[in-house]
Nucleic acid binder design. Structure first.
Lengths: 149, 149
DNA sequence: TATTGTTATACTCTATAACTATA
DNA sequence: TATAGTTATAGAGTATAACAATA
Protein backbone atom coordinates (compact mmCIF):
# COMPACT_ATOMS: atom_id res chain seq x y z
CA UNK A 1 0.00 0.00 0.00
CA UNK A 2 2.94 2.32 0.60
CA UNK A 3 4.86 3.87 -2.28
CA UNK A 4 7.78 4.44 0.09
CA UNK A 5 9.12 1.46 2.03
CA UNK A 6 10.51 2.73 5.31
CA UNK A 7 8.03 5.58 5.47
CA UNK A 8 4.81 3.50 5.47
CA UNK A 9 2.75 6.26 3.86
CA UNK A 10 1.55 7.01 0.36
CA UNK A 11 2.57 10.08 -1.61
CA UNK A 12 -1.04 11.33 -1.32
CA UNK A 13 -0.87 11.19 2.46
CA UNK A 14 2.60 12.72 2.44
CA UNK A 15 1.35 15.69 0.45
CA UNK A 16 -1.38 16.39 3.00
CA UNK A 17 1.01 15.95 5.92
CA UNK A 18 3.59 18.24 4.37
CA UNK A 19 1.17 21.06 3.63
CA UNK A 20 -0.43 20.90 7.08
CA UNK A 21 3.00 20.80 8.72
CA UNK A 22 4.43 23.81 6.90
CA UNK A 23 1.24 25.78 7.57
CA UNK A 24 1.53 25.08 11.24
CA UNK A 25 5.22 25.95 11.40
CA UNK A 26 4.56 29.25 9.65
CA UNK A 27 1.80 30.14 12.12
CA UNK A 28 4.13 29.20 14.92
CA UNK A 29 6.82 31.47 13.55
CA UNK A 30 4.37 34.34 13.18
CA UNK A 31 3.27 33.88 16.78
CA UNK A 32 6.88 34.20 17.94
CA UNK A 33 7.54 37.63 16.45
CA UNK A 34 7.70 40.84 18.52
CA UNK A 35 5.70 44.01 17.81
CA UNK A 36 8.73 45.91 16.48
CA UNK A 37 9.79 43.16 14.10
CA UNK A 38 9.39 43.11 10.35
CA UNK A 39 6.24 41.43 9.12
CA UNK A 40 6.53 38.26 7.12
CA UNK A 41 6.00 39.84 3.71
CA UNK A 42 8.49 42.60 4.55
CA UNK A 43 11.14 40.06 5.56
CA UNK A 44 10.64 38.11 2.36
CA UNK A 45 10.87 41.17 0.11
CA UNK A 46 13.94 42.56 1.89
CA UNK A 47 15.73 39.20 1.78
CA UNK A 48 15.17 38.79 -1.92
CA UNK A 49 16.16 42.37 -2.72
CA UNK A 50 19.33 41.99 -0.69
CA UNK A 51 20.38 38.94 -2.68
CA UNK A 52 19.46 40.36 -6.07
CA UNK A 53 20.78 43.91 -5.51
CA UNK A 54 17.79 45.52 -7.20
CA UNK A 55 14.54 44.26 -8.74
CA UNK A 56 11.30 45.60 -10.19
CA UNK A 57 7.91 45.18 -8.56
CA UNK A 58 6.81 42.75 -11.25
CA UNK A 59 9.91 40.56 -10.94
CA UNK A 60 9.61 40.46 -7.16
CA UNK A 61 5.94 39.53 -7.47
CA UNK A 62 6.68 36.70 -9.88
CA UNK A 63 9.50 35.42 -7.68
CA UNK A 64 7.25 35.24 -4.63
CA UNK A 65 4.04 34.03 -6.31
CA UNK A 66 1.97 37.11 -5.51
CA UNK A 67 0.26 39.67 -7.74
CA UNK A 68 2.14 42.89 -8.61
CA UNK A 69 -0.42 44.93 -6.67
CA UNK A 70 0.27 42.91 -3.54
CA UNK A 71 4.03 43.30 -3.86
CA UNK A 72 3.49 46.99 -4.61
CA UNK A 73 1.73 47.43 -1.29
CA UNK A 74 4.57 45.74 0.59
CA UNK A 75 7.20 47.85 -1.19
CA UNK A 76 5.24 51.05 -0.56
CA UNK A 77 5.25 50.34 3.17
CA UNK A 78 8.97 49.49 3.14
CA UNK A 79 9.66 52.72 1.27
CA UNK A 80 7.60 54.71 3.78
CA UNK A 81 9.79 53.25 6.53
CA UNK A 82 12.94 54.13 4.60
CA UNK A 83 14.08 50.52 4.18
CA UNK A 84 14.02 50.46 0.37
CA UNK A 85 14.50 53.16 -2.27
CA UNK A 86 13.55 53.40 -5.91
CA UNK A 87 15.61 54.22 -9.00
CA UNK A 88 14.24 54.75 -12.48
CA UNK A 89 14.99 51.96 -14.94
CA UNK A 90 17.85 53.06 -17.26
CA UNK A 91 16.05 52.29 -20.51
CA UNK A 92 12.37 51.53 -19.75
CA UNK A 93 10.45 54.47 -18.31
CA UNK A 94 7.64 52.25 -17.03
CA UNK A 95 9.78 50.15 -14.75
CA UNK A 96 11.07 51.06 -11.28
CA UNK A 97 14.04 49.36 -9.64
CA UNK A 98 13.92 48.87 -5.88
CA UNK A 99 16.97 48.30 -3.70
CA UNK A 100 17.78 48.23 0.02
CA UNK A 101 18.89 51.34 1.88
CA UNK A 102 21.58 51.00 4.57
CA UNK A 103 18.73 51.10 7.08
CA UNK A 104 17.05 48.29 5.14
CA UNK A 105 20.14 46.12 5.34
CA UNK A 106 20.30 46.65 9.08
CA UNK A 107 16.58 46.01 9.56
CA UNK A 108 16.80 42.77 7.62
CA UNK A 109 19.54 41.63 9.97
CA UNK A 110 18.09 42.79 13.29
CA UNK A 111 14.34 42.98 13.04
CA UNK A 112 13.56 39.29 12.43
CA UNK A 113 15.54 38.14 15.43
CA UNK A 114 12.77 36.54 17.51
CA UNK A 115 11.46 34.27 14.75
CA UNK A 116 15.01 33.35 13.72
CA UNK A 117 16.02 32.62 17.29
CA UNK A 118 12.99 30.47 17.96
CA UNK A 119 13.48 28.32 14.85
CA UNK A 120 17.21 28.04 15.46
CA UNK A 121 16.59 26.80 19.00
CA UNK A 122 13.98 24.33 17.78
CA UNK A 123 16.30 22.97 15.08
CA UNK A 124 19.20 22.77 17.51
CA UNK A 125 17.20 20.25 19.53
CA UNK A 126 17.07 17.84 16.59
CA UNK A 127 19.88 15.35 16.10
CA UNK A 128 22.45 16.00 13.33
CA UNK A 129 20.88 13.53 10.89
CA UNK A 130 17.51 15.20 11.29
CA UNK A 131 19.09 18.62 10.81
CA UNK A 132 20.71 17.43 7.60
CA UNK A 133 17.35 16.09 6.39
CA UNK A 134 15.72 19.45 7.02
CA UNK A 135 18.51 21.35 5.26
CA UNK A 136 18.15 19.12 2.19
CA UNK A 137 14.38 19.47 2.37
CA UNK A 138 14.60 23.28 2.46
CA UNK A 139 16.25 23.25 -0.96
CA UNK A 140 13.60 20.86 -2.30
CA UNK A 141 10.75 22.92 -0.87
CA UNK A 142 12.26 25.99 -2.49
CA UNK A 143 12.28 24.19 -5.84
CA UNK A 144 8.65 23.15 -5.40
CA UNK A 145 7.62 26.73 -4.59
CA UNK A 146 9.51 28.12 -7.55
CA UNK A 147 8.29 25.48 -9.99
CA UNK A 148 6.38 26.64 -13.06
CA UNK A 149 3.55 24.14 -13.05
CA UNK B 1 32.69 27.50 8.33
CA UNK B 2 29.90 25.02 7.66
CA UNK B 3 28.34 23.07 10.49
CA UNK B 4 27.12 20.49 7.97
CA UNK B 5 29.67 18.94 5.62
CA UNK B 6 27.94 18.10 2.38
CA UNK B 7 25.50 20.96 2.70
CA UNK B 8 28.03 23.83 2.79
CA UNK B 9 25.74 26.08 4.85
CA UNK B 10 25.48 27.00 8.52
CA UNK B 11 22.47 26.23 10.66
CA UNK B 12 21.73 29.98 10.80
CA UNK B 13 21.54 30.18 7.03
CA UNK B 14 19.53 26.98 6.91
CA UNK B 15 16.95 28.44 9.27
CA UNK B 16 16.46 31.46 7.03
CA UNK B 17 16.32 29.33 3.89
CA UNK B 18 13.80 26.96 5.43
CA UNK B 19 11.43 29.67 6.62
CA UNK B 20 11.56 31.56 3.31
CA UNK B 21 11.01 28.32 1.37
CA UNK B 22 7.99 27.16 3.36
CA UNK B 23 6.48 30.64 3.14
CA UNK B 24 6.79 30.59 -0.61
CA UNK B 25 5.39 27.10 -0.98
CA UNK B 26 2.39 28.04 1.13
CA UNK B 27 1.71 31.13 -1.00
CA UNK B 28 2.03 28.96 -4.05
CA UNK B 29 -0.49 26.46 -2.67
CA UNK B 30 -2.92 29.23 -1.78
CA UNK B 31 -2.67 30.58 -5.32
CA UNK B 32 -3.64 27.17 -6.72
CA UNK B 33 -7.03 26.88 -5.01
CA UNK B 34 -10.37 27.29 -6.80
CA UNK B 35 -13.18 29.61 -5.67
CA UNK B 36 -15.37 26.75 -4.39
CA UNK B 37 -12.60 25.15 -2.36
CA UNK B 38 -12.16 25.22 1.37
CA UNK B 39 -9.93 28.01 2.64
CA UNK B 40 -6.65 27.13 4.30
CA UNK B 41 -7.84 27.61 7.88
CA UNK B 42 -10.99 25.59 7.16
CA UNK B 43 -8.97 22.71 5.73
CA UNK B 44 -6.68 22.69 8.74
CA UNK B 45 -9.54 22.70 11.27
CA UNK B 46 -11.51 19.99 9.45
CA UNK B 47 -8.44 17.76 9.10
CA UNK B 48 -7.62 17.96 12.76
CA UNK B 49 -11.22 17.42 13.84
CA UNK B 50 -11.49 14.39 11.58
CA UNK B 51 -8.45 12.77 13.19
CA UNK B 52 -9.41 13.61 16.75
CA UNK B 53 -13.14 12.86 16.49
CA UNK B 54 -14.14 15.89 18.52
CA UNK B 55 -12.30 18.81 20.13
CA UNK B 56 -13.01 22.07 21.93
CA UNK B 57 -12.24 25.49 20.49
CA UNK B 58 -9.44 26.03 22.98
CA UNK B 59 -7.77 22.68 22.24
CA UNK B 60 -7.96 23.27 18.49
CA UNK B 61 -6.48 26.75 18.94
CA UNK B 62 -3.61 25.41 21.02
CA UNK B 63 -2.95 22.63 18.52
CA UNK B 64 -2.71 25.07 15.61
CA UNK B 65 -0.91 27.93 17.38
CA UNK B 66 -3.70 30.47 17.02
CA UNK B 67 -5.77 32.34 19.60
CA UNK B 68 -9.13 30.86 20.68
CA UNK B 69 -10.94 33.85 19.13
CA UNK B 70 -9.35 33.13 15.75
CA UNK B 71 -10.26 29.45 15.86
CA UNK B 72 -13.74 30.43 17.03
CA UNK B 73 -14.23 32.49 13.88
CA UNK B 74 -13.14 29.59 11.66
CA UNK B 75 -15.44 27.15 13.48
CA UNK B 76 -18.37 29.58 13.32
CA UNK B 77 -18.02 29.76 9.53
CA UNK B 78 -17.72 25.96 9.23
CA UNK B 79 -20.84 25.57 11.38
CA UNK B 80 -22.74 28.08 9.22
CA UNK B 81 -21.85 25.92 6.20
CA UNK B 82 -23.01 22.78 8.00
CA UNK B 83 -19.58 21.12 7.99
CA UNK B 84 -19.16 20.88 11.76
CA UNK B 85 -21.63 20.58 14.63
CA UNK B 86 -21.41 21.27 18.34
CA UNK B 87 -22.23 19.11 21.35
CA UNK B 88 -22.19 20.26 24.96
CA UNK B 89 -19.33 18.93 27.04
CA UNK B 90 -20.61 16.10 29.29
CA UNK B 91 -19.21 17.50 32.54
CA UNK B 92 -17.98 21.06 31.92
CA UNK B 93 -20.72 23.53 31.00
CA UNK B 94 -18.25 26.08 29.65
CA UNK B 95 -16.76 23.86 26.98
CA UNK B 96 -18.22 22.99 23.57
CA UNK B 97 -17.16 19.94 21.58
CA UNK B 98 -17.01 20.27 17.81
CA UNK B 99 -17.09 17.35 15.37
CA UNK B 100 -17.50 16.83 11.63
CA UNK B 101 -20.88 16.31 10.02
CA UNK B 102 -21.17 13.82 7.14
CA UNK B 103 -21.08 16.82 4.84
CA UNK B 104 -17.90 17.96 6.59
CA UNK B 105 -16.21 14.62 5.98
CA UNK B 106 -17.10 14.82 2.30
CA UNK B 107 -15.97 18.44 2.01
CA UNK B 108 -12.63 17.62 3.59
CA UNK B 109 -12.12 14.94 0.95
CA UNK B 110 -13.34 16.80 -2.13
CA UNK B 111 -12.95 20.52 -1.62
CA UNK B 112 -9.14 20.75 -1.35
CA UNK B 113 -8.54 18.95 -4.61
CA UNK B 114 -6.73 21.66 -6.60
CA UNK B 115 -4.06 22.38 -3.99
CA UNK B 116 -3.58 18.67 -3.33
CA UNK B 117 -3.31 17.91 -7.03
CA UNK B 118 -0.80 20.67 -7.66
CA UNK B 119 1.51 19.60 -4.84
CA UNK B 120 1.19 15.94 -5.78
CA UNK B 121 2.20 16.72 -9.36
CA UNK B 122 5.12 18.84 -8.17
CA UNK B 123 6.34 16.10 -5.84
CA UNK B 124 5.91 13.46 -8.50
CA UNK B 125 8.51 15.28 -10.58
CA UNK B 126 11.15 14.78 -7.88
CA UNK B 127 13.23 11.63 -7.87
CA UNK B 128 12.44 8.92 -5.28
CA UNK B 129 15.31 9.90 -2.98
CA UNK B 130 14.14 13.48 -2.93
CA UNK B 131 10.58 12.36 -2.26
CA UNK B 132 11.79 10.30 0.69
CA UNK B 133 13.70 13.29 2.03
CA UNK B 134 10.56 15.43 1.88
CA UNK B 135 8.44 12.78 3.58
CA UNK B 136 10.95 12.54 6.42
CA UNK B 137 11.15 16.31 6.60
CA UNK B 138 7.35 16.63 6.85
CA UNK B 139 7.42 14.69 10.11
CA UNK B 140 10.28 16.83 11.42
CA UNK B 141 8.54 20.07 10.44
CA UNK B 142 5.43 18.85 12.21
CA UNK B 143 7.49 18.27 15.36
CA UNK B 144 9.01 21.74 15.11
CA UNK B 145 5.57 23.32 14.74
CA UNK B 146 4.13 21.39 17.66
CA UNK B 147 7.12 21.94 19.94
CA UNK B 148 6.54 23.71 23.26
CA UNK B 149 9.44 26.13 23.20
C1' DT C 1 -9.91 33.64 40.52
C1' DA C 2 -9.14 31.03 36.33
C1' DT C 3 -11.00 29.13 32.13
C1' DT C 4 -14.18 28.78 28.02
C1' DG C 5 -16.23 30.93 24.78
C1' DT C 6 -18.29 35.25 22.37
C1' DT C 7 -18.46 39.90 20.36
C1' DA C 8 -16.23 43.98 18.56
C1' DT C 9 -12.51 45.98 16.25
C1' DA C 10 -8.19 46.35 13.73
C1' DC C 11 -4.07 44.95 11.15
C1' DT C 12 -1.60 41.98 7.64
C1' DC C 13 -1.65 39.75 3.40
C1' DT C 14 -3.50 38.95 -0.72
C1' DA C 15 -6.83 39.32 -4.59
C1' DT C 16 -9.63 41.64 -8.45
C1' DA C 17 -10.90 45.67 -11.05
C1' DA C 18 -10.11 50.07 -13.09
C1' DC C 19 -6.85 53.43 -14.24
C1' DT C 20 -2.41 56.02 -16.12
C1' DA C 21 1.92 56.07 -18.38
C1' DT C 22 5.20 54.02 -21.32
C1' DA C 23 6.78 50.63 -24.93
C1' DT D 1 -1.92 46.52 -28.10
C1' DA D 2 0.83 44.96 -24.23
C1' DT D 3 3.35 45.83 -20.04
C1' DA D 4 4.62 48.32 -15.49
C1' DG D 5 2.89 50.44 -11.96
C1' DT D 6 -0.89 52.78 -8.96
C1' DT D 7 -5.29 53.34 -6.56
C1' DA D 8 -9.53 51.50 -4.65
C1' DT D 9 -11.94 47.91 -2.61
C1' DA D 10 -12.76 43.35 -0.58
C1' DG D 11 -12.01 38.87 1.68
C1' DA D 12 -9.16 35.62 4.57
C1' DG D 13 -6.67 35.06 8.65
C1' DT D 14 -5.19 36.56 12.68
C1' DA D 15 -4.66 39.57 16.85
C1' DT D 16 -6.12 42.32 21.15
C1' DA D 17 -9.61 43.94 24.33
C1' DA D 18 -13.83 43.60 26.86
C1' DC D 19 -17.41 40.71 28.30
C1' DA D 20 -20.53 36.67 30.12
C1' DA D 21 -20.97 32.11 31.95
C1' DT D 22 -19.08 28.35 34.39
C1' DA D 23 -15.56 25.98 37.26
Amino acid sequence: MSAFPGTSISLETAVTELSLAIGQLLRRLRAESNPDELTWSQTVALSRLERAGSMTTADLARAESVKPQSMGATLAELEREGLVERQPHPTDGRQVLFSLTDEGVEARRKRSAAKQKWLLAAMARLDPDEQRTLISAAALIKRLGEGDS
